[in-house]
Design a binder for these strands. Structure first.
Length: 214
DNA sequence: GGCCAGGACACCA
DNA sequence: TGGTGTCATGGC
């Protein structure tokens, strides 16, 4: 268990820019981007998002009307396009039962909503948490690869995976959705700047941060 | 030309 | 529960 997660939050806040992680307020774009970015470079995702934007403008009804092959063609640049196109359709079909009313879905209790999202094939822990935090404005700690790398660098000895790290973090829902977004965004940014290799890590401002492990 | 990028899943022991 | 192969593209 990590005892000073709040100190890490403050330390990141101190050294990182307060930029928005997504360049859009369109929740449907964020949702689809969250699926497309699975194990994929953001640049490639951007090509796909532009294709979807120009073809159907992120309207969920229109996306569901696309033939499988049409959707696959639009998202081809971001890779794994057969899997991802089906995941997008499954998620949108699930949301159709709520009349595409994202506010109604967001009203569902956080842990129940997480379970429901995880029942959708193609949505795993990370994507579910990203959707919770960025689309449904819930509070959660996103324990992605960059977070795992960061905590590994900070001295966690055992090999981490998504669940292990998340279980080590006593995440309090007193953190707002915005705080959860900040935390995640800062960690990813930090990872891209300072977690490429050991030498880089040692030049970073967090290399002297001391994790309290209990 | 090999390697990587904000995963997820089926299959196996 | 935990490890491994598979799904795929574009940029560096």
């Amino acid at each position: 268990m990590i005892a000073n997660i709040d100190e890490l939050y403050e330390a990141l806040k101190e050294v990182m820019d307060d930029k928005k992680w997504w360049n859009t307020d369109n929740l449907w774009e964020i949702m689809i981007g969250a699926i497309l970015v699975q194990n994929t470079n953001w640049r490639n995702v951007d090509y796909s998002l532009q294709n979807i934007q120009s073809e159907v403008g992120f309207l969920p009804e229109k996306i569901l009307l696309l033939e499988d092959q049409e959707l696959e063609k639009l998202i081809r640049p971001s890779g794994f396009y057969k899997n991802k196109s089906q995941t997008i359709k499954r998620l949108l079909k699930w949301l159709k039962a709520y009349n595409f009313d994202l506010e109604a879905v967001a009203a569902i209790d956080s842990s129940k909503l997480r379970k429901l999202l995880l029942e959708i094939k193609g949505i795993g822990y990370e994507t579910a948490d990203v959707l919770l935090v960025y689309v449904f404005k819930k509070s959660a700690f996103i324990a992605d690869k960059y977070a795992q790398r960061l905590f590994q660098c900070l001295g966690i000895e055992e090999h981490l995976n998504y669940q292990k790290l998340q279980n080590m973090i006593p995440w309090s829902e007193t953190y707002t959705s915005e705080a959860a977004q900040n935390f995640h965004g800062w960690i990813v940014d930090y990872g891209q700047q300072y977690l490429k290799n050991k030498e880089l890590w040692e030049t970073g401002p967090l290399s002297t941060f001391t994790l309290k492990i209990i």
